[in-house]
Design a protein around this nucleic acid. Sequence first.
DNA 1: CAAGTATATGCATCTCTGCGCATATAAAGT
DNA 2: ACTTTATATGCGCAGAGATGCATATACTTG
Lengths: 111, 111
Amino acid sequence: MPKHRPLSEDALQLVAARFAVLAEPMRLRLIQALFDGEKNVTELVGVTEGTQANVSRHLQTLTAAHILARRKEGLQVFYRISDPTIPKLCELVCGSLEKSLTRQIGHLAPE
Amino acid sequence: MPKHRPLSEDALQLVAARFAVLAEPMRLRLIQALFDGEKNVTELVGVTEGTQANVSRHLQTLTAAHILARRKEGLQVFYRISDPTIPKLCELVCGSLEKSLTRQIGHLAPE
DNA sequence: CAAGTATATGCATCTCTGCGCATATAAAGT
DNA sequence: ACTTTATATGCGCAGAGATGCATATACTTG
């Protein structure tokens, strides 16, 4: 089991690609909307206030990255979060950002 | 303390921006090179096999994102990881990718 | 103060990706 | 079979960012 060995060039590209998928506000909105269970595309379009085409594309991207999973039911397609590390990932980043922002606020009002 | 409330639009942009910073192989190489302590720019150029200009730029980006910190000593500038969540972040992603890849390998050789 | 070394930056280019628009596919109902 | 509803995709454009080259800045030494 490789734990902390330096990553190969290929591995780095994979990691970078995964971060890139998460680097779009619209995709984060979709992920966030799915935190409380699966939704179909139309619902997601409503929640995120994006066009249907765009939402569909982003859902494709997220599914290809194995972050979401699809389930077809008649005319509708339901998406859900399939990667359990996603919530933890978001928590980590949010926590880090909170700290960073609190520090900045401190700098704005020193005394 | 906000824990699992839906993020505002601004917050989403910040999170996305942070992921974007981590979405470059060269920057990941730099981060990886700094896991075992601080290094100056020339050392980092050597390790990552990039041009000096490029490495310098990426270091700027990482520092602006509060992921790295700078320390000047004479002519040299030493960089180090300043955000303690970065290693955990990378671990999470790597673990998730390993699982994903193992699953794919399983598909290639089912029995 | 001139020369050399370490690091940063301006500029041009090139690629990649997100978006809007229109249209295609798929499934259900009439 | 035709229409309607839900979802996906082809195409073109525009903006962002990564890279290379040259050059600027900062500090040190002679």
